[in-house]
Design a protein around this nucleic acid. Sequence first.
DNA 1: CTGAAAGCGCTTACAG
DNA 2: CTGAAAGCGCTTACAG
Lengths: 345, 345
Amino acid sequence: MGNDHLTPPTHATIDDVAREAGVSTATVSRALHHLPYVAESTRERVLEAAGRLRYVANPNASRLASGATSTVGVLAPVLTSWYTTEVVAGVEDVMAEAGYDLLISTADPEARERMLSGETRFRQRVDGVLLVDVMCREDGAQRLALLDVPVVVLGEEVHAVDSVSVDNIAGGAMAADHLVTLGHRHIAMMGGRSYARDAHDVPNDRAAGFRGALRRAGLALDPLLEVDGGFDIEGGRLAMHALLDLPSPPTGVFAMSDEMAFGVLQAMRERGLRPGVDVSVVGFDDHPVSEAIGLTTVRQPVRAIGRTGARLLLDHLEGSAEVDHHPMPLSLVIRASTGVPHSSP
Amino acid sequence: MGNDHLTPPTHATIDDVAREAGVSTATVSRALHHLPYVAESTRERVLEAAGRLRYVANPNASRLASGATSTVGVLAPVLTSWYTTEVVAGVEDVMAEAGYDLLISTADPEARERMLSGETRFRQRVDGVLLVDVMCREDGAQRLALLDVPVVVLGEEVHAVDSVSVDNIAGGAMAADHLVTLGHRHIAMMGGRSYARDAHDVPNDRAAGFRGALRRAGLALDPLLEVDGGFDIEGGRLAMHALLDLPSPPTGVFAMSDEMAFGVLQAMRERGLRPGVDVSVVGFDDHPVSEAIGLTTVRQPVRAIGRTGARLLLDHLEGSAEVDHHPMPLSLVIRASTGVPHSSP
DNA sequence: CTGAAAGCGCTTACAG
DNA sequence: CTGAAAGCGCTTACAG
């Protein structure tokens, strides 16, 4: 109380600024947008008046009048996994700086279908769309290319629209090669069809790469050692317990995500087994916790994936028509969870 | 190609629907908003026409005309910590269902000041605001109460506006009591002033509760055992190494966040020390990884904090004027990282 | 370099 | 129950 009684009950509009500066609203608009053909002295007067009135343009009015939304839509799996959060953070980094808002929507299967048919809540509300791990395939990408906004696809390689992804086949092979090189012969592979990765090429690609590398080493993947860990911690824990209950448990495990690998390590701890000694474990992602607990993993540049996708979308918003696939690098990070097999042949 | 040539190059507007249904735009608007005083037969005709034309109202036009934004602002520390992500996910759960968009903004110190003075990018763009761990204190809350949108504060107790938080003093005491009960006497406390928690009451409250509980047990906190772990993994690791380099290292450590505790465990692993045997560790949060690695911790209902805050804000948006503090419960989750002191007196 | 005016696509009193 | 019309606050050709 006793404070600033002058606080306006409502916000200043462009008319207020025009009056204050003694010019028309058109001139105010031009001056504030730094458009050419405004006398320097006029511009200064407008800027000053706007500052005095603490004027901020009403975005709804601007957008309605100009047709631009200054918003990009992000369709992503539930923002619950570290991976997704981090990708979106990368997108946010770039888009915030460029002055775009993000409208984030959850990518369940129906949302995916609505997206492909252009029926999303994004309609009329965004200037462009980023799809995170939605898995459209080439036919989906062709439908996206027909939409009236530019679209960039993250997490898979397509060609009808811009895309950025890692080479999951190579990633699976890196994990296998590492375990084989250490001397492992009896190796398990843990994947899954999580909610987020339903109908996904990602696990399939990692599996294919993993199998291929084993094959090249003269090994085959024992069907008993191929398990579903649901891409989360608890799923990884349960699947690992099942593996350890086998008559002949594996000496090495490749978990297709670090979160599953955390569950694997938890199961080992529950049985008093030592990672890297009794059983070797390789994850995928390089979650921040992985370094802390010493998990060997295939690192993806998660945040950079988001940033790169955002930059590509900005290019399109500025008129670029180039369409390409942008591969991102993977690397193996070796830590304490892998070592030579305990009972080496 | 060869596909649907009829796809309209532009979106249907309310005028198109009105023409198609043979009514005025006013009637279309009323019918679509399920307002009273529209003949059932008319409503049906409008709904059908809108469906046929795949009409979606232009939100910018709606918002400009009605003055409502259907958006709530969320001011939160960098969306990089699990805690923040999870709170925001809880907010999103509730707000998405109520038909509100989220406009998320980063809460650095300048953003905090702009918020308190009503100068944010939220101006004119949101119907309400949720502050996550921004720490306004009572005087800040009084300024927020003067703003022209309702505000709910998460993470601290204030009274000028609605707030929801846990009792951090009690939480610090729970950690201390647990370690003392196990027989620990030489106990370290790891806090910090992270970017996110700068100028924060949270660490202070946890520290006060921790100290108070020690005092009640006839113990005092050795100043050498009070360290800064920066509220992240690496900071926790470094601080723990420093503690272990002390002439008389602690037998127990209370880290004020699970992520710091992960760093503590990493440092121990690097030195071959066993959690719960050589040194006992208590965290704070109950991060999903904590169960996997067996970290004893003070659990907060993080997602529920976000949900509760969102519901309170919705209440205000619907006209409620009640203002209250809403406490959320903490609980101690005992796991393998704590045990009786190795060299018990 | 600047202004008058139309228009963006809705919502909402105001009259019937 | 329904329509004509004003108005929300901007932007942007179109003229000067």
